[in-house]
Amino acid sequence: MDRLWQWWDGVELWLVQLPVAVQFPIVMVVVLPLCLGVARLVDRVADLGANNPASLAPESDAESDPESEPEKVTA
Rank of each mutant, 00 (worst) to 15 (best):
S60Q: 08
R3W: 03
N52D: 14
W14R: 06
W5L: 10
E63D: 12
L41W: 13
Q17T: 07
L48F: 11
D47Q: 15
P19E: 03
A54G: 02
W8I: 15
V16F: 03
V27S: 08
Q23V: 02
P25F: 04
K72W: 10
D65E: 15
V11K: 09
W14Y: 06
P58H: 10
A46W: 11
V31A: 15
Q6T: 14
V73L: 14
V42T: 06
N52S: 12
P19W: 04
V11G: 00
E12N: 13
D61W: 02
A46N: 13
A54H: 05
E67W: 14
G49C: 14
S60T: 09
K72P: 02
P53I: 02
K72N: 05
V11I: 15
R44G: 02
D65K: 12
L18D: 00
E59D: 11
T74D: 07
V38I: 15
G49L: 09
E67D: 10
P25R: 05
L56I: 14
M1Y: 00
A21P: 00
L4Q: 09
S60V: 12
E12K: 11
A50F: 04
L36M: 13
D2G: 00
L15G: 00
A39R: 05
L4R: 10
C35H: 09
A75M: 08
Q17G: 08
L18P: 00
A21N: 04
L18Y: 02
V29G: 02
E63P: 00
A54W: 13
S64M: 11
D43T: 09
W14I: 01
V11Y: 09
W14V: 01
V29T: 12
P19F: 01
L34V: 06
L18A: 04
P66L: 06
V38M: 11
V42C: 08
V29M: 14
V27Q: 14
I26G: 01
W7N: 08
T74W: 11
V38Q: 09
G10N: 09
D43V: 04
A75R: 15
M1W: 01
V29N: 06
E63Q: 08
S60M: 03
F24L: 15
P53H: 04
P25K: 06
A62P: 00
K72E: 14
E71A: 09
D9L: 10
L32S: 13
R44P: 00
A57R: 12
E67P: 03
N51G: 12
D9C: 01
G10H: 07
Q6L: 15
G49D: 08
P66G: 01
P66W: 04
L18F: 01
M1S: 04
L36E: 11
V45F: 09
D43F: 11
E12L: 13
A57L: 11
A75Q: 11
L34M: 12
L15F: 13
W8G: 01
G49Y: 06
P70W: 01
V73D: 12
A21T: 11
L41K: 13
F24S: 05
L56Y: 05
A21K: 05
L34Q: 09
V42Y: 12
A54N: 09
D9M: 05
E63W: 07
V73R: 11
Q23T: 05
W8R: 15
